[in-house]
Design a binder for these strands. Structure first.
Lengths: 112, 112
DNA sequence: TGACAATATAACTACATAAGAATATAGTTG
DNA sequence: CAACTATATTCTTATGTAGTTATATTGTCA
């Protein structure tokens, strides 16, 4: 692992970064992103996949779209959402690897 | 950019990922991590750098430590905290790049 | 136009938590 | 032990927001 390069961010920049993390800090929103991994889907489809209510899903979809993570496309009566920023998957992968490493370390404690 | 590999995570795993994002979704916590980028620091030093109150900083330090992101070392009367999980910097870099790209796109709209 | 379907919005409730203030705990030094 | 310093904890207030329910909006088709 090479050292990350120096992190020179203003407090204002950190506020924006924190906002992005906040968007991703909701399990249902992560499930929505996961549901769209293979391509666009309608609101009804997403609602079924993530097993929530339609208004709740609509609200989260708006949040994700406002954050620039989703794109919206309307076709007649139905609205399709799609991933607009693939970096979310990279972020989740990094977190996942970190969590796995941590759990492995903790688990090793009990193996004596 | 190559496509991320398929994302097969259970809802429970996504809950854990969301929790990690939630830890990072606080500007002051990001500033604390930034303050520790170059090595360990005492609580007093951190409090001065991030310009907050000591109790508030202590609480956030505990949150970060509980999440496995910081390590704690006590020496006499003073306590030093240090980064325990370098992945946080990688995460911030990814978010930062994504935000920059988005702002560049938006800004281009006004350049005609 | 009227009935229907898909999506969005509004009002509300419940819960989580950040920040501040006061205090407690622990370690040091005289 | 007493005085002091560094850090942690407790309690409170204020704010944000996820989820629910009800309703509004928008589009289609008869």
């Amino acid at each position: 692992m090479s050292k990350q390069k120096k992190w020179e961010m203003s407090p204002e920049a950190l506020n924006l970064v924190a906002e992005r993390f906040k968007i991703l800090a909701e399990p249902l929103r992560l499930r929505i992103l996961q549901a769209l991994e293979d391509g666009e889907r309608s609101v009804t489809e997403i609602t079924a996949v993530v097993e929530s209510t339609q208004p709740n899903v609509s609200k989260h979809l708006k949040t994700l779209q406002d954050a620039g993570l989703l794109a919206r496309r309307q076709e007649g009566n139905t609205v399709f959402y799609a991933i607009a920023d693939e970096s979310v998957f990279a972020l989740c992968d990094v977190v996942c690897a970190s969590l796995k490493a941590r759990l492995a370390t903790q688990s090793a404690i009990f193996k004596g």
